[in-house]
Design a binder for these strands. Structure first.
Length: 557
RNA sequence: GCCCCCGUAGCUCAGGGGAUAGAGCAACUGCCUUCUAAGCAGUGGGCCACAGGUUCGAAUCCUGUCGGGGGCGCCA
């Protein structure tokens, strides 16, 4: 595409200048070009001259002029160049390059935006991974939106991607036993016994529901059961019920995992023991106070961590070490974990465990997203899982819809806290940003329907006379369309799925602007045809974009 | 005490070495006999928390201070 050709032209010019002895620098300089914010600064702009100034020991503008002088304009792409400001080189291209973009989009369709930039990468994306003791919360939903969108982005770069949910189902977890106890209480209460829910029990009504389901299936069989046996059974049943519900909640949110990975399975299969043994063999453990410790400080952690308790049971970090080893053993070469803010303390120790096991810690990327606050009428809606007044992801989806929920949870950088304005997300009106974007798509669809009704033929991109597209709103819109593939790669590799919401807003704005200023179905048949080709391309890109965000692209609104 | 994130318009936040700092919401003013006004155009609104430093160039990088949030277990 045009951008690569400009980069190549600069590189060749640099080498030519070096060969002539006009510039001195070593290696091949990284040539970066960008789309300038200001349209008057051309189609692309480069700062190489300034970046090279020190090494070449020449004023930036001088270098820029030297580069410009050795770039030919005869290749049909570059119209003219300008040295501007402190030493920017601005490239003004012949409009044909933009028309090629429309041809490319028409040719690639749903695949427009794909690349092979990530080919050969086998990514395991682990996200959500909530404890199986309640419905998926809105906070976990943020992790879900981020993880799933990141997965879609990586897929577009040609990487192989697996979405995985790590189930924290280790036996004897105090949380889970407590959860099981709560279920027992509800079960007995439902059957008329008067016992109190303990202070630290799970108050949510979903526990009552599980109790009712058990009664519906098994009646009062468990009333007379041995209490300890019953607790074990109920803990397991509570867990199974929650996992099933979580699966359903997430599917409703547009997320389907390739694998639900059980922590317990790591213990049962002996993999946790193996991992601890391997750490021991490699000399990174020691015993103290009857416990086995990992020398995680050897790998940058600020203190050593217990792997096996003095009572002989392995800790969470031991299982985590085994889990990450297992991921690598399954052939993945890039592990991405999307974790909530309460896990930030685990980054150093997890990476330490990975390194101590002999894997590359650099192949593990851990993304911590910050808290979500639900806001209603300017007030924070408080949430506590145990108190039972959580607003679940499922409730949020029912309240505002999947599209608004996903869009809002993707609007902010993962490391910013996020205020989720319920009223705004709910409002089916102009103030809601998600509708702004979807409306652009629906508007396009309406336009194309209209054309059909009027008997106007939408020409193929090849048949349209694209050179008629010369107005500013048209060119600005095409430039944005041209940027999509690169935006995909940026958002993927920088792990910034929230960029898509900004891109979506910008693309929608440029379309609306075009729509307002450029009449599509007019008297000039050739111009209408060219504009319809542009409209189709816009629909394609907007659709691809919304699909990547996991949001519907409506045909009408 | 130590660690992480944040501090940018009235509010919520993008931008994270480059040219004149942006968006949504809120406020105000225009634009529908013509393709969806869920739209467009315009106005007002900023010591980019503060202080030093690095750089040709800093909202952006470094150090420190202040303010907000989160995390620091032989819990998971």
């Amino acid at each position: 595409m045009a951008k690569e050709r400009v980069v190549q032209a600069i590189q060749q010019a640099l080498e030519a200048a070096r060969d002539r002895g006009e510039l001195s620098f070593s290696g091949t300089p990284e040539v970066e070009i960008e789309v300038p914010r200001n349209r008057e600064h051309g189609d692309f702009s480069s700062n190489v001259a300034m970046a090279l100034a020190r090494e070449a020991n020449l004023p930036p503008r001088k270098i820029a002029e030297c580069i410009v002088a050795s770039i030919g304009v005869g290749d049909g792409l570059i119209d003219r160049m300008e040295v501007a400001g402190p030493g920017f080189i601005n490239f003004y291209l012949k409009p044909g390059w933009l028309h090629d973009v429309i041809l490319k989009i028409a040719g690639e369709g749903d695949r427009y935006g794909r690349s092979d930039a990530g080919a050969g990468t086998k990514v395991l994306l682990e996200f959500v991974s909530a404890n199986p003791n309640g419905p998926i919360t809105v906070a976990s939903g943020r992790g879900g939106a981020i993880g799933d969108t990141l997965a879609r982005l990586y897929e577009l770069t040609g990487a192989q991607v697996a979405r995985e949910y790590y189930i924290n189902d280790a036996a004897n977890s105090t949380q889970m036993i407590n959860f099981g106890k709560s279920l027992v209480v509800r079960y007995l209460q439902e059957l008329g016994q008067s016992i109190e829910m303990p202070e630290d029990g799970y108050q949510g009504t979903y526990v009552n529901q599980i109790a009712k389901d058990i009664i519906a299936q098994h009646g009062d069989t468990y009333v007379s059961m041995d209490a300890e046996e019953r607790l074990t059974l109920f803990t397991r049943m509570a867990e199974d019920a929650m996992i099933a519900q979580q699966k359903a909640d997430l599917e409703e949110f547009g997320i389907v995992f390739d694998c639900w990975f059980s922590e317990r399975s790591l213990h049962d299969s002996g993999k946790v023991r193996e991992a601890v043994a391997k750490l021991d063999e490699r000399g990174f453990t020691y015993e103290k106070d009857g416990a086995v410790w990992l020398r995680s400080t050897n790998f940058g952690d600020d203190k050593d961590r217990a792997l096996v308790r003095s009572n002989g049971s392995p800790t969470y970090i031991a299982a985590d070490a085994a889990y990450h080893a297992d991921k690598f053993e399954r052939g993945f070469n890039k592990l991405i974990n999307v974790w909530g803010p309460d896990h930030h303390g685990y980054i150093a120790r997890t990476k330490a465990a990975v390194a101590a096991l002999g894997y590359r810690a650099g192949d593990v990327d851990i993304l911590i997203y910050q808290a979500v606050r639900l806001m209603s009428s300017g007030e924070v809606v408080m949430m506590s899982k145990r108190a039972g007044d959580v607003i679940s992801l499922s409730e949020l989806v029912q309240e505002v819809g999947k599209d608004a929920a996903r869009y809002f949870l993707l609007m902010r950088s993962h490391d910013s806290q996020l205020d989720f304005d319920l009223e705004l997300a709910k409002s089916q009106s102009e103030e809601n940003p998600v509708y702004y974007v979807q409306y652009a798509h629906a508007r396009i669809a309406a336009l194309l329907r209209n054309a059909e009704e009027r008997g106007v033929v939408v020409p193929t991109a090849e048949d349209a006379n694209l050179s008629l597209l010369v107005d500013e709103p048209e060119l600005d819109l095409i430039k944005k369309l041209a940027d999509w593939p690169e935006e995909v790669a940026r958002a993927a590799f920088r792990h910034e799925p929230h960029r898509l919401s900004a891109f979506a807003t910008e693309l929608a704005r440029l379309f609306h602007k075009f729509y307002t200023e450029c009449r599509v179905l007019g008297d000039d048949e050739a111009l209408s045809g060219a504009r319809l080709a542009l409209v189709s391309a816009s629909k394609q890109v907007l659709g691809n974009l919304l699909h990547t965000m996991g949001i519907e692209a409506p045909e009408r609104m």
